[in-house]
Design a protein around this nucleic acid. Structure first.
Length: 273
DNA sequence: ACTATCCCCTGACGGC
DNA sequence: TGCCGTCAGGGGATAG
């Protein structure tokens, strides 16, 4: 579900509400989504004060005092929601964090249960998962992006989805960026000209920033922490528009499969050479 | 180095 | 109404 703009929207929402809050009792309703043994998980976080909330790629990082770091990945359908405590949790709510002196609870909800939460010490946490990540899609420079493509023989789409190459992009924004840059998803990365690479880099940045401004894309499950849907689906030009006319040329948007993922292209605007 | 395939899980949707 | 196959914002494991 959530890619960089959705995760960024969630992080900003959580930050507004949670910084400085002390975590109260925690309920783990489904141990499957908690990486650590539930007892250890609860003991580490209960009583901790939330200091900073950030993200790296699609990972959400909640740093507390006592050197406790909560790392989360929402995968496809994970949600962090701020919910009034009197509201009964539904069957897809898996972890509930009480917040001292707050009418709302922080809840982790996840229909498909692919997402997870884990406790890490700041040092070891960044070593394992996060160190393997490539630069953030919003932070990489054009020059570094072009240099990164040059030795890669892979299809550009699978490279952009590879979080060890560049982190934050997912299926929606890769399709949208490639369309805007007029590049076919199967183009070998090392065959892109410098101009094409710079154009693609620029469109990636533009699409992500515009999507953050719109508070993300809601195709089905995505919600912000206050339960609101995103707005960027209005600006999608190829994703989820199979069979519709391309805005630029009128050709019909096609759907294919690249690297196992559903892939949307305009056959005229994104020629494969 | 890279691709393809299966898997984790639940729900929505289309065809019969 | 029900049953079956397919698909879904992700990514890890494994085989080729």
């Amino acid at each position: 579900m959530p890619e960089l703009p959705e995760v960024e929207t969630i992080v900003r929402g959580l930050r507004r509400k949670l910084i400085g809050k002390k975590i109260g009792p925690i309920r783990v309703l489904s141990r499957q989504v908690v990486v650590d043994p539930p007892r250890r998980f609860r003991q580490a976080l209960q009583g901790a004060i939330i200091r900073e909330i950030g993200r790296k790629g699609k990972f959400i990082l909640i740093a507390c005092d006592r050197e406790v770091l909560l790392i989360t990945h929402l995968r496809m359908t994970g949600q962090f929601l701020l919910v009034p405590r009197e509201q009964a949790p539904d069957k897809h709510t898996h972890v509930i964090f009480d917040l001292e002196g707050d009418a709302c609870q922080l809840r982790y909800r996840d229909v498909r249960k692919f997402g997870w939460l884990a406790i890490k010490n700041p040092e070891e946490g960044s070593r394992s998962l996060l160190e393997a990540l490539g630069p953030d899609a919003l932070e990489i420079t054009a020059a570094a992006f072009f240099q990164g493509l040059r030795p890669k023989k892979r299809a550009i789409k699978s490279l952009l989805l590879d979080q060890t190459f560049l982190c934050g992009l997912g299926n929606i924004y890769v399709d949208e960026s490639l369309y805007r840059a007029g590049i076919h998803p199967l183009t070998r990365a090392d065959t892109l000209s410098r101009e094409q690479a710079l154009l693609l880099h620029r469109h990636i940045g533009q699409v992500l920033k515009q999507a953050i401004r719109a508070k993300g894309t809601t195709v089905s499950d995505y919600r912000g922490p206050e339960g609101i849907v995103g707005g960027f689906q209005r600006y999608l030009r190829v994703y989820d528009r199979t069979g519709e006319a391309c805005e630029a040329c009128g050709a019909l948007i096609q759907k294919s499969r690249v690297g196992g993922r559903g892939t949307h292209t305009c056959p005229a605007c994104q020629p494969l050479h």
